[in-house]
C-alpha cells in the first residue's frame, strides 16, 4: 500500500493505560524517519478512569481534532473503547485493538452490560478493511510489564504495513526514546506481537 500518503491515526483507551505514552513513542519514531508529525491529546479530568483519546497525524495534516469517519487507523487499547471509537474510522480504515477488557464501573457494579467480544468484532469487521484483535494486556504481562501491552498494538500497526515505516524502525524508536529500563519489556512485546500476528493472522 501507499505509505507516503497523509495518515490520520486515532488512539483510544482508558485513563492510566498509557495510551499517551504509546502515542508519543509512535510520534517520535515517525519524526525520526523524517515524517511531518502532529500529535494531539487531551489531559485533565479525563484521566481519572475515563476515556483517553489521542490523535496522530502523519504526512502534513494539521487538524488536531478528528471528525467522524476520518481515521485511517484506529488503535483501540481496550475493546469497548474500540467499539465506542469506531465511528471515527474512515470507510475502509484499519482497526487494531486489544481484546483484553477493562470493564467500566457501571459494568463492575452490575448496572450495565459489557458487549461481548464477538459483537465488538462483528461491528468492527462490518466497516473496517482489516481488523486485528490482540490480547495486548496479556502479551504485555508476558513481556514483563502491563504497559508494554501498548507496544504490542503499535508493533502490530508497523507489521501490517499501514504505517509508512516498519517494525525495525519501531525497534529503533524504542531503543532511542524509551528509558533504558523499559526497553527490554517493550522489545519483547514487539516480538510477541509479531509472533501472535504470524500465528493468528498470517492466512
Amino acid at each position: 500500500m501507499a505509505t507516503d500518503a497523509r495518515l490520520r491515526i486515532y488512539f483510544t483507551g482508558v485513563g492510566g493505560q498509557g495510551t499517551l505514552t504509546a502515542t508519543n513513542l509512535l510520534a517520535k519514531t515517525a519524526l525520526m524517519t523524517g515524517l511531518d508529525v502532529v500529535a494531539g491529546e487531551v489531559h485533565g479530568m479525563a484521566q481519572r478512569g475515563g476515556v483517553v483519546e489521542s490523535v496522530l497525524l502523519l504526512g502534513g495534516l494539521r487538524s488536531p481534532k478528528l471528525d467522524l469517519n476520518e481515521a485511517d487507523l484506529l488503535l483501540g487499547f481496550e475493546p469497548l473503547e474500540t467499539l465506542r471509537g469506531l465511528p471515527y474510522l474512515a470507510p475502509n480504515g484499519v482497526v487494531i485493538s486489544s481484546s483484553n477488557q477493562l470493564p467500566p464501573l457501571s459494568v463492575s457494579l452490575g448496572a450495565a452490560n459489557y458487549p461481548d467480544l464477538e459483537t465488538i468484532k462483528a461491528n468492527v469487521n462490518k466497516v473496517a478493511r482489516k481488523a486485528f484483535f490482540l490480547p495486548a494486556r496479556e502479551l504485555g504481562v508476558q513481556a514483563g510489564s502491563i504497559q508494554s501491552g501498548n507496544t504490542v498494538l503499535i508493533a502490530c500497526a508497523c507489521a501490517c504495513g499501514i504505517l509508512p515505516f516498519d517494525i525495525e524502525t519501531l525497534k529503533k524508536g524504542i531503543n532511542t526514546f524509551l528509558a533504558p529500563k523499559l526497553q527490554p519489556a517493550n522489545l519483547k512485546a514487539l516480538d510477541l506481537a509479531k509472533e501472535y500476528l504470524q500465528k493468528e493472522y498470517s492466512k
Partner: peptide, 19 residues
C-alpha cells in the same frame, strides 16, 4: 460527505470517577 451512522448499540459509559 456527512459521516455514516453506524447504529452502534448504546454502550456503558466510562465517566471519570474518584480513584
Amino acid at each position: 460527505k456527512e459521516p455514516e451512522n453506524l447504529n452502534i448499540q448504546e454502550l456503558p459509559n466510562r465517566p471519570p470517577n474518584l480513584c
